[in-house]
Design a protein around this nucleic acid. Structure first.
Length: 896
RNA sequence: GGGCGAAUAGCUCAGUUGGGAGAGCAUCGGCCUUACAAGCCGAGGGUCACAGGUUCGAACCCUGUUUCGCCCACCA
């Protein structure tokens, strides 16, 4: 053993065990990387930079398979660019997740038989921070388990001091620009969370409900109109009935009016184009305080807004005798009462979309309330322009249409939330003059009159408000930092498509507005991970795959490889555990290829791979594998640069297993055991070189196993993480060599097929003849007769220019070469005849097609010359094959 | 209602400027062969959803239909 191998690795050199054991390896290497600060970014403004900000998981989160996918893709890009030599930064962090986190802590309090109101606001906030310190680090630990190479010294939290400063700065500036306003509008209200929700935070679930048909009498007693509703309790707040202006059924009704049952209020009939004449009876009850559309109708016709519920979803004093009832209990009661009074026409089963809180699934109640809004139109226009001009690119490109459509219809963004955990709105109202002071530092007096009687807004900001600033707030904005100069705009954002509008679009708006520059150049939107049947994973269905289970069972690398292999653009991901196991086998295969390499190259031999510098001097199989390596490198780089993650995985898999292991390693075994030093040297040098290239290409996907193997290879080695990523090598490209190898491989496969079909035991020695009229090919075959014998386990090999095929031989034709294997009594004549008959059928079909083409004058006239030439060559080959087939059938027929 | 996507081997999917249908897994047969039985060698298997059209030529381009999935939307 050489004593040069004194590199202070994190493990001593050892003979690799027969199977890869990932548990210990993963733990050990992650620690090594952390201690070596290998993930740290440098502040070098000049150098090409690559930066990603993590989509911050909720601080309450635990790693689910979507995180696993998302972070695997980010890590593999980060590692790729780091190896390419870019100054690379991946910013990690978590989101304070207002409602979600508050819910968690409130549940804790409930278990302690108390609640936040008893505790008071300050104590409650303290309690949340405490929770964050104790439990908030879970997902970060899990990301480390995934191998994430984030710059952990730069971990950020949306409630950090720095980020909070950014939030206030943005709020104040937008307010001063008139882009933030406060007003009484209809919003989605969650009676459980007791807060307003933005439109995006409401999910519409198809729900089985009832459609109630209520009869409203005309005020003059001359008749009645039937209206339909799914929420009959809201009739208590009705202030009009609307009909379409052109609806002749109700002509003149607007002059009369309606006597509202139970309430006994006279309400007007208004004419509004919004009403769909063909729905129900074409008459619509209007409750401006509890329905968005009705709210707008109300604005158009100056209708009174009567709120009939409080913030808990309990009927209020305006509900008269129903006051104090829960909204759903009230619904039942009111239907009963209307029925008794004869105002209920009928009840139908009805399936419709019901809006629910995305956090707690409570049915939201549209209601009017005072809220803060962002005027998004001017901000959205900038974002749309940036995307249209190609300054931000979306992958896959199918998202452009959806993006534009959504941005065109965007409504103002309700940013106030009536909870405690979050960034409190920096606005103070003066008790004396009533003016509002909006400043970034807490004021002591009113900005208008100087009074000290000021009180801060109680509401906090929507969580997505701070997330929208993430790409620049994490880099130190509003200060002019080196980080911003070096890493903004970030390179790419990788996220799930379901937060394209929650988050991605808003980052574009804020980034463009405050940095005057896009927040990222590329956006890669990946799919949702579903189960293997394509169903959404959910706890209730019981089809959830827990990433930590997968890691424990198959190892992080196998899991990461699987996620990468599944990540095809525009495809949903149907996760199948069997695939993970398949890729675990792949990693084990690689491990064993490394073991094999290590067996032959134990000691450090600097310069052993120098043989690859002059490929022309190498024997054919070496030239071939180098040419194939070059092709693989080009494929992998292209796929990486285009975010075609599935192609990265398949290119590496295919090359490693089927070209390197199956062909190359098998082929060079004889050389590795040879007495010829030169032969041995070449084989060892190329073997090691190609393995190294594979490890480097694979490292971004499978960081652990590649690092472990790398450290066990001979020579003084640092971490593979900081090696340079393989580049295309034009000197390795060699089409002629690939063609020659192709021919040899086809011959070998032909012999193996004959062998297998005739059921010849592998230990039974064979004699093979090759009839080859082409002198150049004959020379090639002669040169590699040893390899052909070894790969087919043939005892002897004759290569002749011409000759007759013996009666008892199996044979096939490959590229003009006749492969003949005399089988004596081994041959199964019937089976052979069957096979020939099948082959003949195929040949005749092919011939018919080719002759048809070549007989078509239009084809000859219009098709490119090379295509015609190819068809001619094909015709010739098919004719030869058919002739040989006839010959064989005749011969075997006589044997029989 | 509008938009987007998908339909190719038993399953999951490739198939990038239109030119002889591929991979992995599964299945079947044979093998412990100087790294790997977590392996090796070989085989079978497809009317490229359907119907038209363009073209010398279509899995691919166009039109329509069917089925499935997703997103958006103010039919109460």
């Amino acid at each position: 053993m050489s004593n040069e191998t004194t590199t202070p690795q994190c493990a001593a050199k050892y003979d690799l065990p027969k199977a890869y054991e990932f548990e210990e390896v993963e733990e050990r290497w992650y620690q090594y990387w952390l201690e070596g600060k290998t993930f740290s970014a440098q502040m070098e403004p000049g150098r090409p930079a690559f930066s990603i900000v993590i989509p911050p998981p909720n601080v309450t989160g635990v790693l689910h398979i979507g995180h696993a996918l998302n972070n695997t893709l980010q890590d593999l890009l980060t590692r790729y660019h780091r190896m390419k030599g870019d100054n690379t930064l991946w910013v990690p962090g978590t989101d304070h997740a207002g409602i979600a986190t508050q819910n968690v802590v409130e549940r804790q309090l409930a278990a302690e038989k108390t609640n936040r109101h008893e505790l008071g606001r300050d104590k409650f906030i303290e309690r949340v921070w405490q929770w964050r310190t104790d439990k908030g680090g879970t997902i970060i630990k899990q990301l480390k388990r995934m191998g994430a190479s984030c710059d952990w010294d730069r971990e950020r939290f949306t409630m950090d001091e720095g980020l909070s400063k950014a939030v206030r700065e943005v709020f104040v500036r937008l307010y001063n620009e008139g882009l933030i306003y406060k007003g009484d509008y209809i919003v989605n209200w969650c009676p459980r969370c007791k807060t307003a929700l933005s439109d995006d935070e409401v999910e519409h679930d198809p729900t089985h409900g009832k459609l109630y048909h209520l009869r409203y009498p005309y005020s003059d007693g001359s008749g009645s109109v039937v209206i339909a509703t799914t929420r009959p309790e809201t009739m208590l707040g009705d202030t009009a009935v609307a009909v379409h202006p052109d609806d002749e059924r109700y002509a003149g009704l607007d002059k009369i009016g309606i006597r509202l049952p139970i309430v006994d209020r006279i309400i007007p009939v208004v004419l509004d184009h919004h009403v769909q004449r063909d729905f129900g009876t074409g008459a619509l009850k209007v409750t401006p305080a509890h329905d968005r559309d009705d709210y707008e109708i109300g604005l158009r016709h100056n209708l009174e807004r009567i709120k009939i519920m409080d913030e808990h979803g309990i009927m209020n004093e305006n509900a008269g005798k129903y006051a104090g009832m829960d909204r759903f209990a009230c619904r039942e009661q009111i239907v009963k009462d209307l029925a008794e009074l004869g105002f209920l026409d009928k009840i139908e089963d009805y399936e419709h979309a019901v809006g629910k809180c995305y956090r707690c699934a409570t049915v939201v109640e549209p209601t009017t309330s005072k809220q803060w809004f962002v005027s998004v139109r001017p901000l959205a226009d900038k974002a749309v322009a940036a995307v249209r001009e190609g300054r931000i690119k979306l992958y896959p490109d199918t998202w452009y249409n959806t993006f534009y459509a959504w941005m065109d219809n965007i409504r103002d963004w309700c940013i106030s939330r009536q909870i405690w955990w979050g960034h409190r709105i920096p606005a103070w109202t003066c008790a004396d003059c009533g003016e509002m002071t909006v400043v970034s530092l807490d004021p002591t007096v009113c900005g208008k009159c100087g009074s000290s009687q000021i009180e801060q807004e109680h509401d906090v900001l929507d969580t997505w408000f701070s997330s929208a600033l993430w790409p620049f707030s994490t880099l130190g904005w509003p200060d002019q930092t080196k980080e911003l100069a070096t890493f903004y705009p970030t390179s790419v954002l990788i996220t799930s498509f379901d937060i394209l509008f929650f988050w991605v679009a808003r980052m574009m708006m804020m980034g463009l507005h405050f940095m005057d520059e896009v927040p990222f150049h590329d956006v890669y939107l990946h799919a949702l991970v579903r189960d293997k049947h394509g169903k959404k994973m959910s706890k209730s269905t019981g089809n959830v795959i827990d990433p930590l289970d997968m890691i424990a069972q198959y190892g992080t690398d196998a899991f990461r490889f699987t996620l990468t292999a599944f990540a095809a653009q525009g495809r949903e991901i149907k996760m199948d555990e069997e695939r993970i196991d398949g890729y675990r086998r792949f990693i084990n295969k690689l491990w064993n290829a490394a073991r094999f390499t290590q067996m032959h190259i134990k000691e450090s031999e600097p310069g052993i791979t120098a043989v690859t510098d002059n490929p022309a001097a190498l024997a054919l199989p070496h030239r071939w594998i180098l040419s194939r390596t070059d092709a693989a490198v080009r494929d992998v780089r292209k796929a990486l640069d285009g975010y075609d993650f599935n192609l990265i995985a398949s290119a590496i898999y295919q090359f490693t297993w089927h070209e390197f292991c199956d062909w190359y390693v098998e082929w060079i075994k004889a050389d590795l055991f040879s007495d010829d030093t030169a032969k041995r040297e070449q084989a060892r040098g190329v073997l090691l070189c190609v393995l190294e290239n594979i490890l480097k290409m694979l490292h971004p996907i499978c960081p652990f196993v590649t690092e472990e193997i790398w450290s066990q290879l001979p020579g003084q080695r640092g971490t593979i993480m900081l090696e340079s990523f393989p580049e295309a090598k034009p000197t390795w490209q060699d089409a002629e060599t690939e063609q020659a190898m192709q021919l040899l491989m086809e011959i070998i496969t032909a012999v193996r097929t004959i062998r297998s079909e005739a059921n010849v035991h592998p230990s039974a020695k064979l004699h093979v003849s090759l009839i080859c009229p082409d002198p150049a090919k004959r020379e090639l075959l002669q040169l590699f007769s040893g390899s052909i014998c070894a790969m087919t386990r043939a005892e002897s090999l004759d290569i002749v220019e011409s000759g007759a095929v013996p009666d008892d031989a199996a044979h096939s034709l490959v590229s003009g070469i006749e492969v003949v294997v005399p089988l004596k009594e081994l041959i199964d004549v019937d089976a052979e005849l069957d096979k020939l008959a099948r082959e003949r059928k195929v040949l005749e079909q092919d011939l018919q097609r080719v002759r048809g083409k070549l007989g078509n004058e239009k084809f000859l006239a219009n098709a490119p010359a090379d295509v015609v030439e190819k068809e001619r060559a094909k015709l010739e080959e098919l004719e030869t094959k058919l002739a040989k087939n006839e010959e064989s059938r005749g011969r075997l027929g006589t044997v029989k």
